[in-house]
Amino acid sequence: MYYELATMTLPFGTAGQAATHVQTYTTAPEAGGELLGCWFTDIGQLNQMIVLRGFADLGALQTERARTQKSADPFGCGGIFQSLEQHSYQGFPWMKPVRPSAESGIRGPVYEIRTYGIKTGGVQATIDLWEQYVPPREALSPCVVAMVALDGPLRFTNIWSYPTLDARSKARADAVVQGIWPPKGGPAHLTTNMVSTIALPTAVSPLK
């Protein structure tokens, strides 16, 4: 499964309007892919809308990227956003495709979006370790997706869902106490370039 993670920086007070336009743009007849998540940042870099879309293959992702690049009004927000970034990803091959909350049962409303730099040669080792360690870790909280970037610096992004911030703190602490997270040996393959964002779903987000 392939994914696009788009980030728009918005003027204060425009999130609701932008979310409505994102839904219209991503569900239009000519649109490719599937809208999966539409979040607004709460902790981290603020005033950002993060949009996750899924694609069955790389060609479909590239076709939709071209549509956005050629659009005079990308995401229907060309007259609103101050900046737009789009990044392409491939899901870890052993992970199930991301599905909306209505199908998967995964829901927040607190979503943590974490991006880690990967050292040269560390991609496959990271994928293998996560395949081993994510199942016991998911007994504490679900991993929405883990995916390797196809463009830009070598890195991967993982998204986790929690009912509350307190539940996030407890799950992370319990995982350390139980020795099931982080994956043993995993940090050796990562750089110190790590970013974490807490985001909440907008009204149009299929991941609630």
Rank of each mutant, 00 (worst) to 15 (best):
G179V: 10
V134Y: 15
E131A: 11
H189S: 06
Q124E: 09
Q90M: 13
Q132S: 03
G179D: 05
V123D: 02
I180G: 06
W94F: 15
P201S: 00
G91S: 15
A15E: 06
C143H: 14
V177T: 15
P97Y: 07
A173L: 08
L190A: 07
L52Q: 11
E85W: 00
P142M: 07
M147L: 08
I43Q: 04
G121K: 00
D73H: 09
M95N: 09
C77M: 10
A66N: 05
S205R: 04
V123K: 03
D151C: 05
G79R: 06
A19F: 01
L190G: 04
I198A: 04
V177D: 14
K184I: 14
V110I: 11
R107E: 13
P135W: 01
R65N: 12
L46H: 11
M194R: 05
P93G: 08
R107A: 14
P182Y: 15
A102V: 15
G79E: 13
Y2T: 01
L10A: 05
E30C: 03
T68W: 00
A149M: 06
Y3K: 04
Q62K: 11
D57C: 12
I113H: 09
Q45A: 05
E4K: 04
P187M: 06
P93W: 10
D166Q: 15
D174K: 10
I198C: 02
S71W: 06
G105D: 07
E4R: 14
L35P: 04
Q90K: 12
K70P: 11
S83Q: 10
S196V: 08
E34T: 00
P109H: 07
G32L: 09
P29F: 08
Q48P: 01
T164S: 12
S141H: 10
R67E: 09
S83W: 08
I159Y: 06
G54I: 08
S88N: 10
E85N: 13
F12P: 00
G33D: 09
Q124G: 01
F81N: 02
V176D: 09
Y111A: 01
I80V: 09
I159C: 03
F55R: 10
S161P: 02
G117T: 04
G54K: 03
